[in-house]
Write a protein that binds this DNA or RNA. Sequence first.
DNA 1: GTAGGGTTAG
Length: 579
Amino acid sequence: MEEERIGYLIEKCPDTRVIRQIHAHVLTRLLPISAVSFLLSKIVGFCALSRHGDINHARKVFAQTPNPNIFSWNSLIRGYYLVGSQSKVPLFLYKELVRKGYPSANTFTLAFVLKACSNISAFDEGKQVHARVFRSGFGSNQFVQTGLLNFYAKCEDIGLAEKVFDEIHERNVIAWSTMISGYAMIGLVNKAFGAFREMQTSNVVPDKVTMVSVISACAMAGALDIGRWIHAYIEKHMIETDIMLSTALVNMYAKCGCIEKAKEIFKGIPVKDHKAWSSMIVGLAVHGLAEEALEAFSRMEESKVTPSHVTFIGVLSACAHGGLVSEGRRYWSSMIELGIEPSIEHYGCMVDLLCRASLVGEACNFVQTMPFYPNPVIWRTLLIGCQKNKMLHKGEVAGEQLLALEPSNPENYILLSNFYASVAQWEKMSHVRKMMKERGMKVVPGCASIEIDGFVHEFVMGDWHHPEAKEIRQALRVIAERVSDAGYEPQVSDVLHNVGNEEKGIYLCEHSERLAIAYGILKTKAPVPIRIVKNLRVCIDCHEVTKIISKIYEREIIVRDRVRFHKFVDGTCSCKDYW
DNA sequence: GTAGGGTTAG
């Protein structure tokens, strides 16, 4: 049978050149239509999926196929998202298939379309596919199940993801990893760790992909102890560490304050790609090690790895934190020369760079040249810059824009009121406070966390829902007494945070950073350092109290926020642009 | 022929 012989040739085909010859051969032979359909579908599969693939040729052959079979449709759907993960073509193809009604979608089709929906977070389309899964009876297929789970996780609908996950009877390592990564992605770190533990008790063996998700959750939470434990687990169980896992480890150690360990792991990566380099550069930048970050960038260039837009975010923020204005400008130009179009994040770095160098006027002009409307982050950067440089008029403008753009974010009111306090505009300050009260914004959702015994405890300003709230409150009272006895005079920001709570020393109590530190003092003993992570940096000058607590209790306190580290041991700090 | 993973401005 000629049909079988050609089919066999396609399966064994070594490259695109030969497949084109076979393609021409099929078209010139007088074969029955069914045979032509069958063979052309096979060629579509080859072109769309093989490593020699050519999606455009696949599409051409698909169009020539009299009755493309489901294999052919599936190959094309998958082929399109393999060449471009943001492609919408797989969704169009699926719609076309549904409209035609023939051939019927199978489990492969559904899994591929769900993957395409996950890639572009096409929530409505994915939900329609879910409805079809329900009707089709393919709901018990494990590939379709993980496809659905991944789809909801990527769309950040964790409730629906959990629902799908609960319905999976036999959860394999892939289902567990998807669930863990879904939790980690939206910052539900304790849920991610919990799922990881549950996975082990279900006797499912984690692999390198699982580890990447768990390590990322650690990085997000600043959970160094768990991160170290996971790293030891990887080594003990000899889990292969590929570049993705190594990059996740570099990022985790850097974000948890262990830059030396991050460097060590980075050094051990044999062939580094742009993400590995970016992780290292960003890690050095957040530690205030600007020169090392720029050195790393030079080495990256020497290794002929093309920097990405993320690399430049690291480079520019390193320049900003290191006060390297002219270097920053130079990197900005070279980024554009490389054809990387600056995003609002890059502009944000430059605005920060100029503001930190007291070039606030230039920063304002720079904002006007942006092709984007300034977002709240840009206005906040400017406002903080104006506060430091006591620029009343420009600060006021930034503050107004901020409140107009984001009136429901209490952080903005606190920033503006602190700004007015710093320029001694007391009436304006109280006006902002009044406005905040009138608009019903009671607390700043400042948040700090501390990891103790494998659990991340989160504290939100003014929130006392923690099961040990009573003990924490008591510990804070003792701390407040001792701080007060040490002769500490409350600063403007302390008083601001104490509005409506005038009890002596209580200003220490409401702040999330204080809550986390008090919990650390309560639950751990020296010489273990108290490491806390702050998620919001409204009130930088609050560090003064932290420094005093560190001295009184003779405890090392390390505070990490989104952009830098502060160490409190007799006032020393790992960061150059301190205060 | 199928599913899960790493870097991102204040």
